Computed example of a mutant assay.
Amino acid sequence: MMQHEGDNDRMNIAIDGPAGAGKSTVARKVAEQLGYVYIDTGAMYRAVTLCAQRAGVSAEQPDKLDQLARSLQIEIEPGEHGQSVFINGEEVTSLIRSREVTLQVSHFAANETVREVLGTMQRQLAARKGVVMDGRDIGSHVLPDAELKIFLTASVKERAMRRFREIADSQIITLEQLETEIAERDRLDEQRDISPLVCASDAVVLDSTGMTIDEVIQAIVKLSRTKMAEAK
């Protein structure tokens, strides 16, 4: 493939943060505005979780999980409404957003082999630059050389409220229940041994409590343009 003029002007952007901080929405829109590729690492962990649940493999079975993770071909393709996720050719975009997967994904994401397999996939995707990637350990572990690192956070209350608005009426869950679940996911993500949720030392912390999604997107786009100008 020919190098286009301006390919050297692209960089990688890592957006980390706790559950419900709006990372994927923000990352997708930032990528759109900059003409970059968005890679949703959370969707990749959810894909592994879904396959493990289908196969009856638990997070406490490392050998089976190792085999399963290595057998999966996960593809993420840009679609009209965000991204489409495929596992071995089957589209699972909506299936990986189920409540069963949401409640279990932190346990599977704590598995060393799963992180190693997916981390390698993620680095390969980012090798050509011009990527916006979001997750829990992108700036600290997956892409430690990313030119711009953002740690996007918000209060537990605010994050629960955002999730609450997203959930369809058919799912019976209270705001209090969501707050408890989000706080528990924070605890699991921060305390796991393998690549815990951590703010990279060179990350810009962006507390989005009280900010609109658009304000967050504009703040990150502005930071990326400043970074680009500095690099020249």
Rank of each mutant, 00 (worst) to 15 (best):
Q3M: 06
E5H: 11
G6K: 12
G6W: 02
I13P: 12
D16W: 13
P18V: 07
S24I: 05
T25C: 04
E32K: 04
Q33V: 01
L34D: 01
Y38A: 10
Y38E: 02
G42C: 07
M44W: 03
Y45G: 04
R46A: 04
A52S: 10
Q53S: 02
G56M: 04
V57M: 01
S58R: 08
L65H: 05
D66R: 15
Q67H: 08
R70Q: 14
E75K: 11
I76W: 01
P78Y: 05
E80N: 13
H81Y: 12
Q83S: 14
V85W: 13
V85H: 12
N88I: 08
V92W: 15
L95E: 15
L95V: 07
R97T: 09
V101H: 01
V101R: 04
Q104H: 14
F108Q: 04
A109W: 13
A110K: 10
V114L: 11
E116C: 03
A127V: 07
G130S: 03
V132F: 07
M133A: 06
D145I: 00
E147D: 05
L148I: 06
R162A: 10
R163S: 11
E166K: 06
A168Q: 14
S170T: 15
Q171P: 01
I172Q: 15
L175W: 08
L178G: 09
L178N: 11
E181S: 13
E184K: 15
D189F: 11
E190G: 09
Q191Y: 00
I194C: 10
S195D: 05
A200I: 01
A203R: 06
V204H: 13
T209W: 12
M211G: 00
I213Y: 09
A219M: 07
I220W: 03
K222V: 05
K222Q: 14
M228D: 05
E230I: 03
A231H: 05
